[in-house]
Computed example of a mutant assay.
Amino acid sequence: MKKIKFGIVGLGRLGEKHAENLAFRIPNAELLAVCSVVKEEVDEVQEKWQIKYGYTNFDEMLKNLELDAIFISSPSEFHCEQIEKALAAGFHVFTEKPLGITVNEVKKVSEVVNKYNDKIFMVGFMRRYDKSYAYAKEKIEKGEIGKPVMIRCYGFDPAQAIQGFLKFAKNANSGGLFLDMSIHDLDLARWYLSSEATKVWAIGGSYGYPEISEIDDAETGVALAQFENGTMGVFAASRNCAHGYHIETEIIGTKGTLRIGTIPEKNLVTVFTPDGAKIECSSGFLERFEQAYLSEVEEFVKCIIENRKPNVTVEDGIKSTILGYACKKSFETGELVKIEY
């Protein structure tokens, strides 16, 4: 079967993992080109995996006519511009979340995506492809918990990663706590509740790391949202989780409840020592969602080969971004924000 030839931009922590998946783990995909503004990253990946082309300029990579698709894993502030350029150059496009960091730019990029409707476009909301999250969706659709009325989401990054975030945030615009971290939870809420948020109130602060407030962001925050169909969402996010990477989701229905990831287990091993029994926690998102990162791109490749659209659309990217931006606005102003799409 035909192999889809990829060029990837962005070789940071997540970008390098995506590049490795494309190069070695995804059937019918071939990583032909890598791009980063950091030349050392390009040189290292090219040499390590024998990648044919390396670039430090995104526009130059787009001139490579051997490529079929562009994978965008660069900092969030560059996503919309690179999406537009890649589609205009004739490529299929997969972009990491968020779609963008302002409402205006995501609405503009939506027009571009719809203009190039012959190309396959997909946003990386990988949790929809995690087996546990997909199983929960099946349970909801079968009516096993009745009508979903509330969703509660925890998205906590490990404290050990906070210095890496601070280094990144000083040089790039992440979009803030809710756009950067809660965007997956906001997308899941829309997916599970089958509705769009109408108003949101968010609070937060920087408690263990006051320097985060100096970049107009929060270390830990909570948002409360109401949806069009009367359902509710509670979203807690933090960059400072002492015990590790903790992603937890609860969907409460009229006849039952689903919980995903209540204990952030690294695996099924329990360690028994004289100090007691210990269940080790996941160290980060790459470990917890390893399967999901593979599955979402496998689906993207299949969509190109079979010439069909993925279930995750540009509209999902737009509406999740608008909701995330509303959380950011509420946090910054301290006011209840009504959402307009």
Rank of each mutant, 00 (worst) to 15 (best):
I260D: 09
I263N: 14
G230A: 07
G230T: 00
E214H: 03
S238I: 07
A223M: 13
K255G: 05
T270Y: 06
D275S: 13
G276D: 06
A202G: 10
L258K: 01
T220M: 09
I215K: 07
E250I: 08
L268Q: 11
V269M: 05
G256L: 04
T262Y: 14
L258A: 03
E214I: 05
N240L: 11
K199R: 10
G233Y: 09
A225F: 01
E248H: 10
V200L: 09
G261C: 04
E228M: 05
E265I: 00
I260G: 09
I247P: 04
Y245P: 13
G208P: 07
W201I: 13
A218M: 11
I212H: 06
A236S: 15
I251C: 01
R259Q: 10
I252G: 02
A277H: 09
E219C: 03
T198I: 15
T220Q: 01
G204R: 00
T249C: 14
N267S: 14
G256T: 03
A202C: 14
T273R: 10
G221S: 08
V234A: 12
E248N: 13
P264I: 07
T220L: 07
V271M: 11
D275H: 05
I251F: 02
K266W: 05
V269A: 09
D216F: 09
S206V: 02
H246Q: 07
L268E: 07
K255F: 07
A236R: 01
E214G: 00
T257N: 12
L258M: 06
P210S: 01
G204C: 02
Q226R: 08
T273H: 01
A218C: 11
R239M: 11
I212R: 00
L224D: 03
T220I: 11
A223V: 01
T257M: 11
G276V: 06
I260W: 13
I260Y: 04
T254S: 13
A202P: 02
V234G: 08
T262C: 11
G256Q: 05
G244Y: 06
G208T: 10
V271I: 13
G244K: 05
N229H: 08
H243Q: 12
K255E: 15
T198L: 10
T198H: 06
Y245T: 08
F235C: 00
G276Y: 10
M232D: 12
T220K: 02
T231H: 02
T231Q: 00
D216M: 05
Y209L: 08
E228K: 08
T198F: 05
A218Q: 02
A242F: 11
I263Y: 09
G221R: 00
S206C: 05
S206F: 00
A225R: 04
Q226I: 14
L258P: 04
V222A: 13
W201A: 06
Q226Y: 05
S206K: 00
V234H: 06
V269E: 10
F272S: 04
Y245R: 10
I203E: 02
A223H: 02
Q226T: 15
E228L: 13
T220V: 09
A223R: 06
H246C: 08
I203M: 11
G233F: 00
C241Q: 06
A242M: 12
T231P: 05
L258I: 15
T249W: 04
A277K: 14
